[in-house]
Amino acid sequence: MADVITYRDAVAEGIAREMRRDPSVVCLGEDIGAAEGVFKTTVGLLKEFGPDRVWDTPISEQAIVGAAMGAAMTGMRPVAEIMFSDFLACCYDYIANEIPKVRYMTGGQVTVPLVVRTANGGGLGFGAQHSQAVENWVFAVPGLKIAAPSTSDDVVGLMAAAIRSDDPVVFFEHKGLLATKGPPAAEGHVVELGRARTMRDGDDVTLVALASTVPVALDAAERLAGEGVSAEVIDLRCLVPLDVAAVLASLEKTSRLVVIEENPYQGGWGGTLVSVVADEGFDLLDAPIKRIAAACVPLPFADALEAQVIPGVDAVTERVLELAAY
């Protein structure tokens, strides 16, 4: 086994591991078979598992996710790919009205063990309709679990948990992280859904991050250390279940909270997280809570403009220094 594996290859590896252990796992999506995915996140799957388990679909997002739902209700564990997370809007009926509700509204008569995988986020200059971080779109709907890994081994471990989950999971793969490298996951590696990971220990401030904002937070923490500020970095890894307990435990130590989100400030997931902290952890705080999120504008195309909208290391470092001085 190689010393390192890219996040991109970890996606295919994570799916392949589950397909090997469970014949009911099948994949469907646009260009996932012979083309091996537009992001090359399904490389090798068609070759290893054949056309009965890896299905190329037309550009029909409703049919893709709706068919995955029907298959999940009848004994399969489908893994559906929606190429860009922006396209979740094309099948949002299934995300908002069908998949999260059918178990509940039938009084528990059916179960929907499926995964919707999708490439999320910006920073690559794809413009307003192919760059959004839309985890908040999904977070708005009770009844879905949400994973958004930041490292290669978490991609594999969370993919295993997501595919094995009897509940529906939306799995965000960050486009900006696909080329990053990390240690490969051990055989049988599974990361339980809803367990945050402390990426760096610190005493002065807690930085809560998700997916692409995890490396941003880690870079900022390194700079902050040079300024004499010790930052703890927590990777949430999942939004549902949301590991509030891990955040509160960190605040026992640091008493200062900064949440770093790529989705827009308006309606972003951090709003829910900080509301729980304000409600249940107010006594732990020595300073106001800060949310650093994307600006509330559509994503622009040019690099120089996109960098204005999505929070980067400079902005995070600056805001944390202000807070540390409070």
């Binding site: 409703q62 049919a63 893709i64 996710v65 709706g66 068919a67 029907g70 298959a71 009848t74 069908e98």
Partner: peptide, 18 residues
């Protein structure tokens, strides 16, 4: 939601085939 269940039926049929 009008039409939402047609893809589901397609998926159940796909599952039966598989």
């Amino acid at each position: 939601i009008v039409g939402s269940h047609l893809p589901m039926a397609v998926g159940a049929a796909w599952s039966a085939r598989l």
